[in-house]
Design a protein around this nucleic acid. Structure first.
Length: 378
RNA sequence: GGGUCGGUGCCCGAGUGGCUAAAGGGAACGGGCUGUAAACCCGUUGGCGUGAGCCUACGUUGGUUCGAAUCCAACCCGGCCCA
């Protein structure tokens, strides 16, 4: 027991902070090794980051990846993953993993859900079967999947939403957080609380206060990047991050565009996850510091340039824009694969630059310039 | 040479008197995607005009009709069958 407490006490260390803003450079220690923060976590919902192999992911500079409770519960089921040796073995990823609780699916699968104070009943998007998820089952499943970081079961509200709806979601998220902490029964596995409250500062304050009072290994800001827009999002993150303990990691869930990430780091956020690099990559959209490139566009037909001139990713080292555009044009799977690789490397290079800037004390000025420059990171 | 079926927009293809600038695919072009129901979804695709609208178009030419992609005739081209 003391061992566990020690693990939980010392799992996050801050290496450097920026004197001009909330940005900090840290390390999150997990059962499968350290994670340099600020960190970006690619999303592998169903137990795989779509289109790329684990060693390719590692080559992008990724240290920690995500998987999803709801999706793995439906297929193949937590028992199967357990029987096959746990999530790390299953995903062939022997580094840190974070599982989301399924709270986001309350938002994304909105029409297929029925929610009450106990939890949620989903009509499975696979076969329509009734599937129940609540604080205890979500925690139990995550315990069994065996990720290094697991999340409380929360209610992610849409935007816009009725104030009453958001208030109720905050109440439930707090009550469920208490139950998740109670149900959590696996050593060496960090449990993060989640703050909801839409874009209402008062609700965010109340939720943050209660979640912090319960006490978690880390704190997430949820319910953003659901349609509220960059400015609302940044304002809410700045307000909320300041209410979270400085000695614990802060995680902004589901965010986001490069500009969103830079603004949130400035507000003191340490961890991010987002489907954009992989989903947009599959959909022919490449991130570059010079701006977005849409590879279906005929402009790239006979371009001999790499996706991004100074990028060291596999796609940029070996393929021309013209070839990649051709792959998309023909529906060849290598197109989505190459842009997923490039976009992941783009995100990890961005995070690496952010960490260096914080270490060297130039982050705030750099961030301001990047945000003003806009294109490429917006 | 005879018979027969057919020729529709970039391609395939529906339509067999007015509701047709012409369904539906494909392709091309453009856009969207933020804790992944997403290698997906949306839009545009004859010309001119802001617009009502006008012009040009369903192999070619001519005809019937108030009105033709749709009916008739001849011709051209293609598939199949018979000599």
């Amino acid at each position: 027991m003391p061992e566990r407490d020690e693990f939980h006490m010392g799992h996050f260390e801050t290496i450097a902070t920026d004197s001009c803003c909330g940005a900090r450079r840290g390390v999150l220690h997990t059962a499968h090794g350290p994670v340099q923060t600020p960190a970006f976590m690619p999303v592998g919902t169903a137990g795989t980051i779509k289109g790329v192999t684990p060693d390719q992911i590692e080559a992008t500079g990724t240290e920690i990846i995500l998987a999803n409770t709801y999706h793995l519960m439906l297929r193949p089921g937590a028992e199967v993953v357990e029987r096959l040796g746990g999530l790390h073995r299953f995903m062939a990823w022997n580094r840190p993993i974070l599982t989301d609780s399924g709270g986001y699916q309350i938002f994304s699968l909105g029409e297929l859900t029925r929610i009450n104070d106990d939890g949620v009943e989903f009509a499975s998007h696979v076969d329509g079967a009734r599937v129940h998820l609540n604080a205890e089952t979500a925690t139990d499943i995550q315990n069994r999947l065996g990720a290094d970081v697991i999340m409380c079961f929360d209610e992610c509200t849409p935007f816009p939403a009725q104030p009453e709806h958001v208030r109720k979601a905050v109440d439930r998220t707090i009550a469920w957080a208490r139950r998740c902490k109670q149900a959590h029964a696996r050593d060496g596995q960090l449990l993060f609380g989640i703050v909801q409250g839409g874009i209402d500062p008062a609700l965010r304050s109340r939720c943050a206060e209660e979640i912090v009072r319960i006490g978690f290994d880390g704190y997430a800001i949820g319910g953003l990047s659901v349609g509220e827009g960059h400015d609302h999002m940044v304002r809410t993150v700045e307000h909320t991050a300041a209410l979270l303990p400085a000695d614990r990691p802060r995680y902004l869930m589901g965010v986001g565009m490069p500009a969103d990430i830079i603004a949130a780091v400035r507000a003191g956020v340490d961890m991010f996850d987002c489907v954009l690099p992989t989903r947009n990559g599959r959909n022919a959209f490449a991130f570059t510091r010079q701006g977005a490139l849409r590879f279906r566009n005929s402009a790239h037909i006979d371009s001999g340039e790499p996706i991004e001139a100074d990028c060291d990713c596999y796609a940029c080292r070996h393929f021309t824009r013209g070839a990649i555009r051709h792959f998309f044009n023909c529906g060849e799977m290598l197109g989505p694969i190459l842009l997923s690789l490039h976009n992941l490397r783009f995100y990890q290079r961005l995070m690496s630059e952010i960490r260096t800037q914080i270490e060297e004390g130039g982050f705030d000025r750099w961030a301001a310039a990047e945000l003003a420059r806009g294109q490429g990171v917006r």
